[in-house]
Every structure is written in C-alpha cells, then in structure tokens.
C-alpha cells in the first residue's frame, strides 16, 4: 500500500500548510545567525519530503515561494521552481529508502546541492541577468572578472560553492528534528525509518 493511501488527504494538506510555515520560520531564524548564504528555507520542504514523499514536498516548495511573494513581494516567486525541484528529488529518494542509510543520505545531499544550484542558476541567469542581490553576487563578480566564464557558469559555480553550507544545516535540522520527535509522531515518518 502506498503512503499516499495510508495518509489522509486532509492530514497531507495540513502538513503542507505547516511545512510552508516551517520554511518561512526557519528562514527568519537563519537571519538571526547573520551568516551569509545560510537560508534554511527548505527545512519544511525536506520534512514534508521525508514524511509525505515527492509530490506533497514539491507542493510545499512551490507554494512557499508564492506565500513569501504575497508577504514580501513577487520577486522570489520564480525561485519556487528551485524549492519544488528540491522537494521532488529528496521526496523521490526518501521514498526509495535512501534516507535510511547514512551513505545514501550523503549521496542524496550532493544530488540535492546540484539540483538546487542548477535550477537556481538557470533562473538567476535568464530571469535576473545573473544577479540575486545576495552576498554570493560578489563571488560571481570575482569569477566573471578573473576567469572569462560566461554568466551561467559563474553563477552556478558560485552557488554550488556556497550551497553545501546551507544544505548541510537544512539536512541536519530536518534529521535532528525527526530523530528527536516523540514516538507517536515517529510512526508517521515511514520513509525516514521503517
């Protein structure tokens, strides 16, 4: 029996609502640290992926940016595709049981970094001409002026160089939260642990 059949639709919808709120809350908590490049705005999507699978996680990811767009302004809405791709990939591999082994989780971490950086670079380059207004633009500027690479390559390299820090804490927070959950909630995390 698939997980989607075991979890009621209303439970999944409620989880997505909370997943979006967690993304926003974790994002504002990240600003408390003041570390450039640390966003933590995928934590809710990752939790949804580990608990409900790829489709609900993708929904959480996409709608997070729409919600953020309504709150802060529409500029970030296109980056919902990045969040959605992250949810799809992590949810798919979690469904396949990859998050039950540390080695496979580490591989998933690398895959997730490439997926997020790849999709983000395409959006940044073609929709925003290579600029995000984030601190990593300085790295892009340095690469452009010193290497002769084109904007897409420079944006991708700058993003993939800074992404592992953010992604590490996204994974660490999501897995620590799952590990520390009371038993009644752990029963509902089938992809994480059988």
């Amino acid at each position: 029996m698939s997980l989607e059949m075991r979890v009621s639709r209303s439970y999944a919808v409620s989880f997505v609502v909370v997943g979006i709120a967690l993304n926003v809350i974790a994002g504002s908590l990240a600003t408390l640290t003041g570390i450039p490049g640390l966003y933590l705005d995928l934590s809710g999507t990752l939790l949804t992926a580990l608990i409900l699978g790829p489709w609900w996680a993708a929904t959480t990811g996409l709608l997070t940016n729409i919600v953020n767009g309504i709150i802060w302004g529409p500029v970030g809405i296109p980056f919902g595709i990045v969040n959605m791709a992250f949810g799809l990939v992590t949810g798919y591999f979690a469904q396949k049981g990859w998050t039950r082994s540390w080695i496979k989780t580490a591989i998933l971490f690398v895959i997730a970094c490439f997926v997020v950086s790849g999709t983000a670079s395409i959006i940044v380059t073609f929709l925003f001409g290579g600029a995000t207004g984030a601190p990593q633009d300085i790295v892009v500027f340095a690469l452009l002026s010193s290497t002769g690479w084109d904007i897409l390559t420079s944006v991708f390299i700058a993003d993939i160089a800074t992404k592992p820090l953010d992604m590490f804490f996204e994974f660490l927070i999501a897995f620590s939260v799952l590990q520390a959950l009371p038993g009644e909630f752990k029963q509902r995390t089938p992809f994480y642990k059988k």
Partner: peptide, 26 residues
C-alpha cells in the same frame, strides 16, 4: 550567535508544536 547548530534546540519544539497543530487541523 553565529552558530546554526544552536537553532536545533529551537527548531525541535517548534516542529513538535507544528505537528500537534497538523493533527487538530486535519
């Protein structure tokens, strides 16, 4: 401070509160 690891003790209770909300909401 500047230590993201210190966010974990904050995130866990928030998530548990959130999960309780999910039950009520569903």
């Amino acid at each position: 401070g500047k230590n993201p690891l210190k966010l974990i003790p904050v995130m866990i209770p928030i998530t548990v509160v959130a999960l309780e909300r999910i039950d009520k909401m569903s």
